[in-house]
Nucleic acid binder design. Structure first.
Lengths: 107, 107
DNA sequence: TATACACGCAACCAATCGGTTTCACAAATT
DNA sequence: AATTTGTGAAACCGATTGGTTGCGTGTATA
């Protein structure tokens, strides 16, 4: 029972669900209509997403509305953050190299 | 044989390897010394990372140096990007609510 | 009250995963 | 030339995964 955000996001169906409920809460049945799987399969995905707090539930009568907990996504963003500086630096280095080449050509 | 960036990043050992070789290229043996697994296990992780182009190899004699392909990380960043606007908006909404509460208290 | 609906949960299943062990091969060292 | 070293690849194994089917429960509707 691994409840890790990265593991949760690894599945393409779960990513699609996340996008789907990002801007409007939806019931499991409504979500399932968008995929070629059963409601139970979607329900399982929702359970995983709920357990790692990427999704929140809201009961309304006999229906349960699921919506994305966008804040939680920051945790992924934070992990990538440590590399962002690196790839921006690389760009700068490339710029430096390119301008040096240009300079050499013009000499 | 699923070669998906998100699936590659899902494994904690692979994430650790990525951090390890982000700033300096390393051989499989050297990488393996940092974990409680065999070189072969690390080698398997490196294969997966290589296949989805998160890592590049450089042969030097009988040694192979692996290093992170930081540029590829942007693909994950791009997926998160679609939610970033949303969570920033939420913050703004929260700010608005908080300042309203503050205002009410002061009245 | 009986029926239909929305849902979660448990049992089961084939496929995949992360790991180990064993092997083969090429490059360095003796 | 023989040995050691660094490596990838294949065979195998138990655990996990994503999926299905069948069930029980609570809420709406007839």
């Amino acid at each position: 029972m691994r409840r890790d955000i990265f593991q949760a996001v690894a599945d393409p169906t779960r990513r699609a669900i996340m996008v789907l409920i990002a801007f409007q809460a939806m019931t499991p049945n409504a979500i399932a209509e968008n995929f070629n799987t059963t409601r139970q399969a979607v329900s399982k995905h929702l359970r995983i997403l709920t357990e790692c707090e990427l999704v929140k539930q809201e009961q309304k009568g006999r229906e349960i509305y699921y919506s994305l907990e966008v804040e939680k996504m920051k945790e992924i963003d934070m992990w990538i953050e440590q590399f962002r500086a690196s790839w921006e630096t690389r760009f700068n280095q490339l710029d430096t190299i390119l301008s040096k080449i240009k300079k050499t050509r013009n000499e």
